[in-house]
Amino acid sequence: MGQAHDVLERARAARLEGRHEDALRDHLWFHENALAVEPGMAGVRLSFALRDWIYLAEKFPLARRALQGLRDRDTARLLEGDGSRSGGARDLFRDIAAINGALGEERATHELFERLDLQAPALAQQCADLALPALAAAEDFALARRYLGDPAARVANLAANLNGYTEELVRSGNTSSAPALLSFVLNYAKEVRLVVEILHRQGEEESAAQVSRAALEELKSDALRDAVQREFDTPGATIAAMVAHARANVTEH
């Protein structure tokens, strides 16, 4: 493990030991520097690290204000056209949306996207897929539909990514990636449900039905179709499977 991983673990330990200022200092360092030293931590940075930050904020309100401060700084940078950071404006928007999601302030993402729609529509188009969950949460389905594009093409692309990931697992013979595959299934079902909800809310019932069918028909594996169908039928089934897999591994070891 590298430096960024060690700093995140140190932040977690400091929080558990009640050393809140030390934990916040490490969280700030990790958020600002992790990708420079360990690019592979991109997913962790906007998921587990933010989750731990919120746990800290529940005990130490200054941590919440610090996270809001980062969000506000990045929002100002985005609106000022600062795409100079690595990954550009789209990654800046991704950071903002992830922080808002962690804070439970998705409405701020909606408000930011509304401003981009008015002031920088080309940038709004680049960030639209990242904004759609917040637009749906705000029930701004008209704006969401405008940026959804071709729903059939969107679902076909999502299915191609899931098919490709599954085929790569089969080729590699990697039997330890079941949790990652289940996570992919969960995200796929979530994205499809979002597309279908937007279409429903805009009265496009036929398109919604077509997308729902295609979401299963585009998958190449019967097992994959079954897993996605279970998640459609019983939202949360995939998470239950992930928990069961983790418990089985603990029992085996």
Rank of each mutant, 00 (worst) to 15 (best):
S221T: 05
R71M: 08
D74S: 06
R85M: 07
F60E: 00
F141T: 06
E252R: 15
E252K: 15
L224S: 05
F60G: 01
R115M: 10
V250A: 12
V250D: 04
R115Q: 14
H253P: 02
D95Y: 04
S84W: 00
E21L: 11
A248W: 12
Y55G: 07
L186R: 15
M1C: 01
D233S: 14
A215F: 11
E218V: 04
S207Y: 07
A120R: 15
I96N: 06
E38V: 03
V228Q: 15
L143G: 12
L92F: 03
A42C: 05
S207N: 04
F48V: 11
G236D: 06
R73P: 00
Q125W: 05
L92T: 11
D95K: 05
V170L: 12
Q126L: 14
N161C: 07
R230A: 07
E206Y: 00
G149H: 06
D95R: 08
A89T: 13
G40N: 13
A98K: 14
S47A: 08
K220E: 01
M242S: 02
H253T: 14
A102Y: 12
L224T: 06
F232H: 11
Q3S: 03
L79D: 00
L130Y: 01
G101K: 14
D91F: 11
A209S: 05
G40D: 10
D22S: 11
L219Y: 06
A241G: 05
E111N: 10
R12H: 03
D129N: 09
M41N: 06
P39D: 10
D222C: 00
V195L: 01
M1A: 08
L158R: 15
K190Q: 13
V185P: 02
D74W: 03
A4F: 00
S176C: 06
L148V: 07
I54M: 15
E17P: 02
R71T: 08
T109I: 03
R45G: 02
A237Y: 10
